[in-house]
Amino acid sequence: MFKVIVVVLIAVVVFLLDFATVKKSKSKKDKKVYIAFFILALSIVVLHVMEVNIPTPIEGIKQIYQPVAEPIRKSLEKYL
């Protein structure tokens, strides 16, 4: 829990420093998208710090390409 608090505190500092530059662009859309992404990034970092297992997208890619990959894999592995 301590780690999470530290991360959030750091995030607040980063946000304060960083948001100033986003504000300069004077575009509402920029601000909205920025905040959305910031929350996304923060939640990922917090999840990681809390040692929650985040599923890796690699597994999904593997699943998708399984039919193509498997036969070539087999023939490649022959030469290992």
Binding site: V14, V22, K29, D30, Y34, F37, A41, I44, T56, I58
Partner: peptide
């Protein structure tokens, strides 16, 4: 993609996302 005004807008959140991605992608 988001029709933003500057390329720099999303750089900081993306950087953190990439760091965590780099860690969790491969065990």
């Amino acid at each position: 993609f988001f029709n933003l005004k500057s390329t720099k807008t999303l750089s900081t959140p993306l950087a953190f996302i990439i760091i965590i991605m780099g860690i969790i992608l491969f065990t």
